[in-house]
C-alpha cells in the first residue's frame, strides 16, 4: 500500500488518477478506476451539461467511491457544467485550459475539491491562492493539450512553490513513472494513455490498437501556432496538420477549421485517416489491454518495487 497526502485528501486507496480525456473518459471507465481504488474522472470536454449530468448519475450507480469530473474551461458549456458538478456534489473537479477562479466559491459551497491542471509555477501558486485542494502538474509528455515544460522539470518546481499536494502527470504509464513522480516531490500521479486501453474504456477499437502498436517516437505536438498545442499520434491527419501549420500559405482560421471534429472522428468513429488520436509520449510502454483494476494494481505494485530499492546506489 502507498499512503500519501493525496489518498488522505480524497479518501481513495491508491494515489492514482485516471486523466479526464475528452470523448473517451466516461462514467463506465471512471467508475471502474474508482472501484479499483484510484480516482476515476469523467471528461466533459465540449459536452453539454445534460451529458455530464447523465454521466455523473450513471457513475453514482456504478460506484460508491469518490470520482471526479474534468472541466475544460474553454468549453462553451463550462458554466453550466460547473453548476452540474456543484449540484451533484461530485468529490473532485479537475480543470484545464484556464483559471477556474470564478467557480471556486460555487464548488467550495458544495464540498467539491478543486484540483486544477497547471503547466507553470505561477498557475500553481494562483490555484493555491484561490483555494485549490491540490494541483496536477502536467508535463508536455502527456497526450492532448500540453504546455512547454516536461514533467521532470515542472513537478519539482511546482512542489517548491505550493504547500498543497501535487499530482504529477505526463509520461507516467508504469510503476517506475509513479516512483519517479514521488521522488520529484509529487504525492500522486495521473495517467491518461494507460487507461485509454483499459477494458472498461469504450473508445473505438482502432484507437486502442494504435496506442498498443505505438513506439516511443510515434507522437507529435501540433497546434502551437494557434496557441494551444496538442500531442497526438502521428497519423495522416496529424502529418497533414503539421504541414499546414508550418506552411506560411495556410491561414490560422483555415488551420483551426481543419482540426474541428477530428477528435470525435478518432474516439467514436475510429477514423484512422481523418481522426486526431491524442496520446502521450509514453504510448510505447502501453502494450496490452487490461482491466482498470489490473492497471491500478500494476502501477502501485510497480512503484512499491522500485521504491523498495530506491537507496541501492547510496553508500
Amino acid at each position: 500500500m502507498i499512503k500519501t497526502p493525496v489518498t488522505e485528501l480524497i479518501g481513495i486507496e491508491h494515489p492514482v488518477f485516471q486523466g479526464g480525456m475528452a470523448w473517451i473518459s466516461d462514467a463506465v471507465l471512471a467508475a471502474a478506476v474508482s472501484n479499483a481504488g484510484g480516482l476515476g474522472i469523467i471528461a466533459s470536454g465540449n459536452a453539454t451539461a445534460q451529458y455530464v449530468s447523465e454521466q455523473i448519475k450513471k457513475a453514482k450507480t456504478l460506484t460508491a467511491k469518490p470520482f471526479g469530473v474534468n472541466i475544460m474551461l474553454t468549453s462553451p458549456h463550462a458554466e453550466a457544467v460547473a453548476q452540474v458538478v456543484a449540484e451533484e456534489a461530485v468529490s473532485v473537479v479537475t480543470t484545464g485550459a484556464g483559471n477556474p477562479a470564478k467557480f471556486m466559491k460555487l464548488w467550495a459551497g458544495a464540498g467539491v475539491k478543486v484540483i486544477p491542471v497547471v503547466a507553470s509555477t505561477a498557475l500553481a501558486k494562483l490555484a493555491q491562492r484561490n483555494g485549490a485542494a491540490a494541483v496536477i502538474a502536467e508535463g508536455c509528455e502527456s497526450g492532448g493539450h500540453i504546455g512547454e515544460l516536461t514533467t521532470m522539470a515542472l513537478v519539482p518546481q511546482v512542489c517548491d512553490v505550493v504547500s498543497i499536494p501535487v499530482i504529477a502527470a505526463g509520461g507516467i504509464a508504469d510503476g517506475r513513472g509513479v516512483a519517479a513522480a514521488f521522488m520529484l516531490g509529487a504525492s500522486g500521479v495521473q495517467a491518461g494513455t494507460r487507461f485509454l486501453v483499459a477494458k472498461e474504456c469504450g473508445v473505438h477499437r482502432n484507437y486502442k490498437d494504435k496506442i498498443i502498436a505505438a513506439k516511443d517516437i510515434d507522437t507529435i505536438a501540433t497546434g502551437k501556432r494557434l496557441g494551444h498545442p496538442v500531442r497526438s499520434l502521428k497519423t495522416a491527419f496529424s502529418r497533414e496538420y503539421y504541414a499546414k501549420e508550418i506552411s506560411g500559405s495556410v491561414a490560422d482560421e483555415d488551420l483551426e477549421e481543419f482540426g474541428i471534429g477530428a477528435l470525435r472522428l478518432a474516439a467514436v468513429e475510429g477514423d484512422v485517416k481523418k481522426g486526431c488520436f491524442p496520446a502521450g509520449q509514453i504510448s510505447g510502454l502501453v502494450t496490452k489491454e487490461q482491466s482498470a483494476k489490473e492497471i491500478v494494481e500494476e502501477l502501485v505494485a510497480g512503484a512499491e518495487a522500485v521504491l523498495g530499492v530506491a537507496t541501492r546506489y547510496c553508500v
Binding site: G98, N99, A119, S120, A122, L123, K125, L126, G147, E148
Partner: peptide, 11 residues
C-alpha cells in the same frame, strides 16, 4: 505572450 506569460507577469 500567452496565457502562462500573462499570469507570470501579473504575479
Amino acid at each position: 505572450l500567452d496565457s502562462l506569460d500573462v499570469v507570470e507577469l501579473a504575479m
